[in-house]
Write a protein that binds this DNA or RNA. Structure first.
Length: 490
RNA sequence: CGGGAUGUAGCGCAGUUGGUAGCGUGCCACGUUCGGGACGUGGAGGCCGCUGGUUCGAGUCCAGUCAUCCCGACCA
């Protein structure tokens, strides 16, 4: 499995690609830029979905579903929104095929041209706000707290498995509020939920902050984001929460009568995370031996592998494994017993190591005699012989330990790769080497643009409550009162 | 959209001056194995991306075409 697997040092991009494919997470499909998410990868995504969905519902949100297609005219209603998405839209122009008169397969029937083209949604603000108009008349209809799990299509020039695919899966929350304060509070609440999810479930430390005007979502007044640092020193935007102001309400004429009987535009937010989180997860923890999964998201947290020569031995081992498995499952631990006879134990060890299963238990005749098992942890690759007595508590504890260890390891990595820089020379050098660079910035888009042109670095985020500190912009030398985070990004 | 590369067995690849389609791995059967990717024997598996041309003969030469991947610019 891990044969012909590149190391991170050799070629990080290659390592990532190989890992995704060889660990059975996803594959390139017959369609350019679109991936097939395989069962093992999808199982991880399902666990992410389940955890997020619960967090959304616990904060009062409901799920709904809106159409895949959006009438073209909807896109022209919010000026900056069109501008942001126009270049990457798939457009449906016809609704029928027919047999090629020349006898070669099928062709698009020219008589089946659509009156108005349909856009395959790149995001759903427009169709949703067009719908909200009919849902909202009074302040009593607010707030609307809706989330949708869906697929979207963005026709990107270049794609990478999970990180940027033409079609991807995500959730998009779209909320409507009577006041600005409430909408801002929602925006903030959701970015906090994303940060909590990233840290508690993915064991991935994130920075929270605000996007600069250049990086802001098309149509938003303010974009909040979480950013994580990948092992190659590049930043990855892992989630965003947008305060949309009244932009979409105005574009789609969504008004309500307030308590004071005044007609007002509705305030909006939208927020989302995507299958890109899979990429973030992989690039945060995995190593040259393959995938490393945090126990909270691993499809199976423990794999048990029998070691035996004769069928009678397997029988005795399986009986013991059955006991162990039941006791672990009683603790809510997800366990897989791999008793396939066609593969050797060594093969299985490598297989599950590559697939990132947090804990492996091996049990053979020797263990049966001694009342022990061999327990190996994926994060440190340590192996220990443990007494079977109380194994459920031991494993439960170990899984918690691994979850914490992965977070701490990633946290230290980010810490060691965050640099405070004051001169343009140092800035350029550090950006070249990678990591987050904390530097002063004069607050203008022009400067940000020039820095990007010269170094490829962008402002990943502006801290929400920056530590006041007088300084000079690293590029222009103009005065600045706090530092912002720069990095090269995915 | 620019640059680079590749299409041959499920997967990874080789294929010389044009002359019977190969290797590794995986797959199937049987046997021996099994504490870190076991081995033997036998077997199945091919529109050589597609279209056209040159030739007695094309995986190989020529022209076209389609597709995918990688690197950039654009983006979650």
């Amino acid at each position: 499995m891990a044969k012909n697997f590149s190391t991170r040092d050799e070629n990080y991009a290659q390592w990532y690609n190989d890992l995704v494919i060889k660990a059975g997470l996803a594959d390139n499909s017959a369609v350019r830029g679109c991936m097939v998410i395989k069962p093992y990868g999808y199982a991880i995504w399902e666990r992410m979905q389940a955890a997020l969905d619960k967090m959304f519902k616990d904060t009062g949100h409901e799920n709904a579903y809106f159409p895949l297609f959006i009438p073209k005219s909807f896109f022209s209603k919010e000026a900056s929104h069109v501008e942001g998405f126009a270049k990457e839209c798939a457009v449906v122009t016809h609704y029928r095929l027919k047999n090629d008169p020349n006898g070669k397969g099928v062709i698009v029937d020219p008589d089946a041209k659509l009156e108005e083209e349909l856009i395959v949604r790149p995001t759903s603000e427009t169709i949703i706000w067009d719908t909200y108009r009919t849902w909202i008349q009074s302040y009593r209809d607010l707030p609307i707290l809706v989330n949708q799990w869906a697929n979207v299509v963005r026709w990107e020039m270049r794609t990478r498995l999970f990180l940027r695919t033409t079609e991807f899966l995500w959730q998009e929350g779209h909320t409507a509020h009577a006041t600005q304060e409430e909408a801002l509070e929602e925006t903030n609440q959701m970015i906090n939920i994303y940060a909590e999810f990233a840290e508690k479930w993915m064991a991935m430390p994130v920075l929270k902050g605000i996007k600069s005007a250049n990086e802001r979502f098309a149509g938003a007044v303010e974009t909040y984001c979480i950013e994580a640092l990948m092992q190659d020193g590049k930043a990855l935007q892992a989630g965003t929460s947008h305060f949309l102001g009244q932009n979409f309400a105005k574009a789609f004429d969504v008004k309500f009568l307030s308590k004071e009987n005044k007609l007002e535009h509705v305030w909006a937010t939208s927020w989302g995370v995507s299958t890109r989180l899979m990429g973030a997860l992989i690039m945060t923890h995995s190593d040259d031996n393959g995938l490393v999964l945090p126990p909270n998201l691993a499809p199976y947290q423990v794999v048990i592998i029998p070691i035996y020569k004769k069928a009678e031995q397997l029988e005795a081992i399986s009986a013991k494994v059955d006991e162990i498995k039941k006791s672990l499952e009683a603790k809510g631990i997800r366990v897989k017993y791999d008793n396939r006879d066609s593969l050797t134990p060594g093969w299985k060890f490598n297989e599950y190591e590559f697939k990132g299963v947090p804990v492996r238990i091996a049990i053979g005749p020797r263990d049966l005699e001694n009342g022990t098992v061999e327990v190996a942890r994926r994060d440190t690759l340590e192996k220990n012989i443990l007494e079977i007595t109380d194994i459920d508590n031991k494993i439960e504890h170990l899984l918690e330990l691994i979850q914490v260890n992965l977070y701490q390891k990633a946290y230290s990595f980010r810490d060691e790769n965050t640099f405070i820089v004051d001169t343009w020379e140092d800035f350029k050098n550090q950006i070249e080497k990678g990591g987050f660079v904390l530097a002063h910035w004069d607050g203008t888009s022009e400067t940000e643009e020039k820095i990007k042109q010269e170094t490829k670095a962008t402002i990943r985020l502006i801290p929400v409550n920056p530590k006041p500190e007088t300084g000079k912009c690293v590029f222009s030398g103009n005065p600045s009162s706090f530092r912002v985070y720069f990095a090269k990004a995915y």
